[in-house]
Amino acid sequence: MSLSSLDNLYRQMILEHANQPHHHGNLPTADKQIELRNPTCGDVLELAVKLDDSGKIADVAFSGTGCTISQASASMMTDEVIGKTPAQVAEMVEAFSEMITAKTDKDYEKLLGDAVVLEGVAQFPARIKCATLAWKAIYQALQEGGHEHE
């Protein structure tokens, strides 16, 4: 098979996010912090979240190590969650997980924005955990706010 089938996985926008991730680093004044690991590949993701007075996400930052898919997914997630309430984020996380596992034709763009380019991951089951790590992290940071391992 030619490697063109890989273009569904490694879309241009994904490569750009992975090479120059948005909101990369940490937040010294974070309200919530979490570290998640993907035990199958040794990846580590640290996520810091700052909330505003109304409880919405004011800022978010991530760091750690991971593959192209996990880094791009984290970068896109940070773009999409700023300004959202924890309840809205929970809904997005659920939608993201559904998108890359259920292979439905539903249109997720309204809810997930640019992160819909990751839908190609559904064709690569071995890589689903790479894509979901950051989304699990933001969910757990907001729900539990603890220092958890996957």
Binding site: M1, L6, G42, G66, C67, R127
Partner: peptide, 28 residues
């Protein structure tokens, strides 16, 4: 390049390799 990305491309070429910590995290 992360080894997961490498292994995915190799798989598309029919080549099966392992990527990860190989159950040896202290070694990693």
């Amino acid at each position: 390049l992360h080894p997961h990305d490498t292994a995915t491309v190799l798989d598309m070429e029919g080549v099966a390799v392992r990527a990860g910590h190989h159950c040896a995290q202290p070694m990693m």
